[in-house]
Write a protein that binds this DNA or RNA. Structure first.
Lengths: 338, 338
DNA sequence: TTGAGAAATACAATCGATTGCATTTCAATA
DNA sequence: TATTGAAATGCAATCGATTGTATTTCTCAA
């Protein structure tokens, strides 16, 4: 049951562990004959290097830590996939934690990863997170840190973000151009950069057409299906909007289904738009206009950044910010038949 | 930049590392005074235990390896989430790999995890995998192994699976009872247990009503949206089926959209059913009848199994199989208005 | 004051691999 | 044959924490 070590190989061949180690790494000072013998024996004995031991000795970790709010949200699952596709060929394994949108769990996760001496940490913060102390600790201990999507800007750290502002801005312009004027807007917590930027981009887009957004027509909460569904009731009591825009797709979906249930026609009575291009937005009826985020690309960019930071750890390079462009996807839910 | 060790604490307090180590673990032979002093100093110096060193010394890993075909498929993302929710409180971190449905990558992943000396491995095999040698190696090295969902039964290993047979069986009965008789069936590779079981369950369900499944009405391939979409063309050329059933939801979705595009009414002209209860099936129009798999529960069960195996490693217990019940979800796509 | 025994702490080996430096081996040259 | 220097291998420390076995310190009773 005990695994084979280089000492076992050495003993078998009447060599020392150091020679075996060097042979396995093709060290030039080991004769060809010995090298081949060692490799053959390693194969025979089913030797598998113990990377725990290697990490301890060399001080280099072979793993990268990743913290996301929820693994099973498609956006994050897709970024994880993008990250993995870069880190795996680079020889790093991924240790994945979910914060469950909980600040304390996030702090716990960071502690765990630091104990594991990961080579670097990639994080998208929980929506409860309103401070940066726990993130600063990471950098202070010399561990490369890359934030993505939901980021805090009050610390020195590289990050990968979407052009949220622009995405929402273009959406706003599209809607106005399609003839919508009285908007309701559903947003997530505005202390998170992503929702703040989407909100501001949206307002700016309207502003350029001199369209106003009534403050009483703004709802904020967690952008779930249920929240979207419930918000419609509140909104329809007031001055009827002719378009309901959500900073997240699931809430938009809730809006759509509540409207359909209430007998409203979308988009003829009311238009609906979301954000994130969740798969379902393409297949519901009517298909929902939304903004593609290219999550996979977001992930691979984050992974490349962290690899660079790990490689160039000695010299403290300035933090870099990479922006991934969004893309407005116009579908039936916001286009009236002329 | 270098991290603080127990030696640093020891030096500071004129103690030895062993005393510090024992103090931190509340060893009874260390005086209360020293214990508290050590803990205070550890706090002050920002000491973080190096779990690499601990693992090497104790021979116990603090991580569990997980291999799935694709992280960004909702079913797997959900199982991962379920696994994490169990392993994390138990003090294990998760190292996640994706095989990308590629056999060689899967073998690579296993090697990596074994080098990392994970405490156990949880796997759902790729659809290219048709042998078990690489899995046997895991057990042979004394590493607990748990398979889930897509499993190989030709080796001794615990596993967590759905009642695929029953799920499909119930679906078949439902369809016949709704008055459908001429079926087309879309399946994934039949060398995978899940597709084999679904197929057999489906046939058995039909058989009990003396309904036959024409072999020429069976299509097999990767159950993607595109595959579903394309299959319709082939099927409609023949004797028209009155229901198209897919062993996966995305293909069912492709079927649905192709039918709609061809001007067929679902379910009045043709019924459509899928498998997996992907979110989108609930929101498309008509909503698609499907089978819920409880992926999250599948994951937490797999995690519990591996924890048990890790705990009871000494005595070789018999491999266990846990079945997670499926649940037939009947929606509009298979229910004709009377 | 001394000795016994308990209490507290120190010593040293260990986990498996790596690596600077020392030592051995061997072939080629003087 | 002795010498030299390169080639090949061995020795031993190290990474940070743990743990069995000393050893020291202390307390209390005789």
């Amino acid at each position: 049951m005990k695994q084979v070590t280089i000492h076992d190989i050495a003993r078998r061949l009447n060599l020392t562990a150091s020679t075996v180690s060097r042979a396995l790494h093709n060290h030039p000072r080991i004769s060809k004959k010995t090298r081949e013998l060692v490799k053959k024996t390693a194969e025979e004995l089913n030797y598998r290097p113990n990377s725990i031991a290697t990490s301890l000795r060399t001080g280099k970790a072979n793993s990268i830590g990743l913290i996301v709010p929820k693994i099973n949200r498609f956006f994050f699952a897709d970024t994880i996939s993008g990250i993995e596709s870069v880190t795996s060929p680079a020889g790093y394994s991924l240790i994945i934690c979910q914060s469950n949108e909980n600040y304390r769990k996030e702090v716990e996760n960071i502690k765990t990863l630091m104990r594991s001496r990961v080579a670097g940490i990639i994080i998208s913060i929980s929506n409860e997170t309103v401070s940066s102390g726990h993130l600063k600790v990471i950098s202070e201990n010399g561990i490369p840190l890359v934030q993505f999507d939901r980021v805090r800007t009050d610390l020195r750290s590289s990050m990968v973000v979407n052009t949220n502002y622009r995405g929402s801005y273009e959406l706003a312009r599209h809607l106005v151009e399609e003839g919508f004027h009285r908007f309701a807007y559903l947003t997530g917590p505005l202390h998170l950069n992503i929702y703040k930027e989407r909100y501001e981009g949206f307002r700016q887009g309207l502003k350029e057409y001199a369209v106003d957004l009534d403050p009483s027509m703004i709802c904020d909460g967690e952008l779930t299906y249920q929240f979207g569904f419930d918000s419609v009731g509140r909104l329809l009591k007031k001055d009827l909007p002719d378009a309901i825009v959500s900073a997240g797709d699931y809430a938009a979906l809730g809006v759509l289904f509540c409207l359909k249930q209430a007998g409203k026609r979308v988009p003829d009575d009311i238009a609906v738009a979301g954000y994130a291009n969740e798969q379902v937005t393409a297949f519901c009826d009517p298909a929902i206009t939304t903004v593609e985020q290219y999550a996979h690309r977001l992930g691979s960019n984050a992974a490349n950044l962290i690899l660079e930071e790990i490689a160039g750890k000695q010299q403290a390079k300035p933090a870099r910010t990479v922006e991934v462009n969004t893309h407005l996807i116009i579908r039936e839910s916001t286009v009236r038949n002329k």
